[in-house]
Amino acid sequence: MQNVPLEFYLIVSAILFTIGTIGVLTRRNAIVIFMSIELMLNSVNLTFVAFSAFMGDVAGQIFVFFVMAIAAGEATIGLAIVLALFRNKQTVYVDEANSLKW
């Protein structure tokens, strides 16, 4: 069966990464910013898996697991920070957390 070329996967991954970047830059809600970061991490995972399958090397898929573990840790810590922020300032909008801004 004729398979899809590698470039198509890389283009989809690039588009998803850009969507995640735009989400991080434009949204104010900290939870949606975290979801955009997950989008970016997942697009890189797609690149890893695509290269792994096309080059016959398992290292790409191993790294996907490490990225997933980092993403889980990041989501845990980030959501705990959001909870602490909400408890202290009653907001999750990042531009209202400006105590350290000069």
């Binding site: 398979n3 070329p5 590698l6 290269f51 792994s52 399958a53 096309f54 080059m55 016959g56 090397d57 398992v58 898929q61 191993i62 697991f65």
Partner: peptide, 21 residues
């Protein structure tokens, strides 16, 4: 990079191969 899926790609996607590695 080769333009077709590597012939080993079916084997390395399995839980057994990934777990061993």
């Amino acid at each position: 990079v080769n333009n077709n899926l590597h012939p080993k790609s079916v084997e390395i996607g399995t839980a057994q191969f990934i777990g061993k590695s």
